[in-house]
Amino acid sequence: MSTDTLQPPVALGRDIDRSAYARWLGKLTDGICGLTAAGTVLVVLTQVISRLLGAPISWTEELTRALFIWMIFIGLATSMRHADAARVTIFMETLPRSLRRLALPIYLFCCLGFFALMGWTGATMVRQQILMNESIATLGWPSWVIGLVMPVSAILAILCTLESLRQHRAAIALDPSKATPKQEAAS
């Protein structure tokens, strides 16, 4: 086997050539998702065990909901990092090449616009929760602790979208001539 056909080195399923920024962004988003998933499992187990023992704990349902909300919103940012957003690729492939070139700018404009709107709406909501001194009854926490996920995930989603553009541009733009062997195998 010749060395020119070997695949680039991979460590733990990730490409070594990713930038430090991309690795940091991945660890941050994956870490938050992992912590919230683990927390959700532990809280639900606590809830089930306490109910089986006949002494249900009141705060477990609210905390499960809060962790799940954080996991979903940060998971959205993570999916953008992997360019896993839902797209109608079969429709895009039927368009003429000249129109297909507009797919990437439209994709970016829509994604970044949506996340900017989500961030602004989330920041407005958090400000309102702080001003009104809203709290979660069973946990005794301020409501903004949960609401904060909207602007945080919006910022992370924008950063992840831009990073995915750098890493997965050919896959996002549906340009098979520029796709890497890894991207071709995934499609």
Rank of each mutant, 00 (worst) to 15 (best):
Y107S: 00
T89K: 13
I136G: 03
R127N: 13
M118T: 01
E163D: 00
R100Y: 12
I90F: 15
S164T: 01
S153I: 12
A123H: 13
W120K: 04
A77D: 03
V126K: 08
P96L: 10
C111H: 00
T121I: 13
R169W: 15
G147P: 03
M150Y: 12
P105V: 08
S153P: 03
V145S: 04
A85F: 00
R169L: 11
M125T: 10
I158Y: 04
L159F: 09
P96Y: 09
I146F: 10
P96T: 10
L156M: 01
V126A: 08
V126Y: 13
R97G: 12
V149P: 13
R100N: 08
L148P: 05
A103Y: 05
M132A: 06
R100C: 06
R87P: 01
L104G: 03
L156R: 00
V88P: 00
S98E: 12
L102N: 06
I158W: 05
I106H: 03
G147Y: 15
L102S: 07
S135G: 09
W120Q: 06
F91T: 03
R101F: 15
F91H: 10
W141K: 07
W120D: 05
G122D: 06
Q128K: 05
L139I: 04
W141Y: 06
N133L: 14
G119T: 02
T124I: 01
F73K: 03
S98V: 10
L117R: 03
E134Q: 06
R81Y: 14
A157S: 10
R166I: 14
I130G: 09
L165K: 02
A137Q: 11
H82K: 06
N133P: 12
P105F: 09
G113E: 00
R101I: 14
I158F: 07
P105Q: 08
V88T: 02
I72D: 07
A123D: 11
P142D: 07
M132H: 14
T121C: 11
H168T: 02
R97H: 15
L139G: 03
L112N: 00
V88W: 09
A137E: 10
L139S: 06
A123E: 13
S98R: 09
D84H: 07
C160T: 07
I155S: 12
E163G: 00
E134T: 04
I155N: 11
E93I: 10
Q129K: 03
G122R: 04
T138F: 13
L99S: 10
M71Q: 12
S135A: 11
G122P: 06
C160P: 00
L159S: 09
A137W: 10
F115W: 08
S143T: 12
A83Q: 01
G75T: 00
E134M: 04
R127C: 13
Q167W: 13
M132S: 11
G113W: 05
P105D: 02
T161R: 02
G119E: 04
C111F: 01
A157C: 05
